[in-house]
Design a protein around this nucleic acid. Sequence first.
RNA 1: GCGAAUGUAGCUCAGUUGGUUAGAGCGCCGGUUUGUGGUACCGGAGGUCGCGGGUUCGGAUCCCGUCAUUCGCCCCA
Length: 418
Amino acid sequence: MSKIETPRPIRGTQDIFGAEAEAFAHVVETFERVRKLYRFRRVEMPVFEKTEVFSRSLGETTDVVSKEMYTFEDRGGESLTLRPEFTAGIARAYLTDGWQQYAPLKVATHGPLFRYERPQKGRYRQFHQLDAEIIGAAEPQADVELLAMADQLLKELGIADGVTLQLNTLGDAPSREAWRMALVEHFREAEDALSEDSRERLHKNPLRILDSKDPRDQALVHDAPRIDDFLSGEAERYFLAICDGLDATGVKWHRAPTLVRGLDYYRHTAFEFVTDRLGAQGTVLGGGRYDGLIETLGGHHTPAVGWAAGIERLAMLVRDAGKAAVDALDVVLAVEDDRALTVAQQVLAQLRRAGFSTEIVASGSPRKRFDKAVKMDARVILGFDHDDSQVVRALRGPEEWTAKIDEIVTPLVLAQAS
RNA sequence: GCGAAUGUAGCUCAGUUGGUUAGAGCGCCGGUUUGUGGUACCGGAGGUCGCGGGUUCGGAUCCCGUCAUUCGCCCCA
């Protein structure tokens, strides 16, 4: 008989358990609570879409589309792709599901996304994001509201210290194009001094040179033309309105003139909440305005803003900050004699129905069950020996007491209340 | 796609210049002790030393390849 080999997990996937899973759930629960305060509607989106949903909206030449997507043919021969981000699918639904009637539409969702990348700290092939979008709103207040929600989320997660909001504008389409051309001209003059990566970027995505980490690029970036010199009057007024709005809302921000976005569809506002506590993956939440995206999917010109946040990255910060408290165990039952099992089962059901989180220890060596129960760190321990009185003893409460089995809940409720 | 480090029990790790039958702590299972108690002791299960090849009388240890993990680059949340 040949040995059966256990299948290995897929590279870049995670089996999340224990404290990590608690932190993960805490992030999602907090997001759900905050999103309701801001009246964002919950949506559930498909995990896969036609490939063109992403290739057209993100841009064929972006790394995400050209080498990071999980694309496959289904049995009908259609090219499908596991979603590498949320925005494109939501924009598609806005057009195909008649969501335009609800504009301006505020939606929120979360779930798994897929990108074929080299895994490292805070970066996985199946990863998870929170996502919030406002579609059909052209006014700066939409950007401000979205940022305020992000800010409140981070504060309620208890990780706002050490995370800063980096804010920039990319201008409207003409501003952005003029800036882009000036940047290309600036960097082309000194092309030989650029890093290899940046020479490549010069042709593919010159804006990205601005946030290069290579020291050879730093000096050139420092002298590079600023978007401020290319902003149209309208684009400038728009950006100032956002700055004022954030100040009025009490959201702290820093101007980051070299902050750009990787994906082509962004206009005007661009932002990232950044920390230095997660190594190379410092962006914890990022987004911006994507007024051009809906058109690439065949819709009318539709202004929109959104952001996404990496749940794993937030969960790591939450864990490091010690903010993910595991819910304490209310009661543990130690069955020290198997003949008392039936009685214990009755009490167990009674307690759980009454709303107490309850665990039972009834296996292994009877003499060691109490010790096991003690280690579970419950607020109350109930000991079950075998005798005819059907009385249990409670320890580790505010005080010790005994009770008949059908009267256990009452003293526990009283103990809870005191 | 590129670079570096690391893979020994369920977990955290020892394992000397290559040399008997590969170890410890924790956890798990059983027993004894204690008996309103988180104790101590005894015993047990559990390992193709990531995988494959090579060098050697002999490989957990040296060499090559491969897979995985981690940390960077890139990309991005």
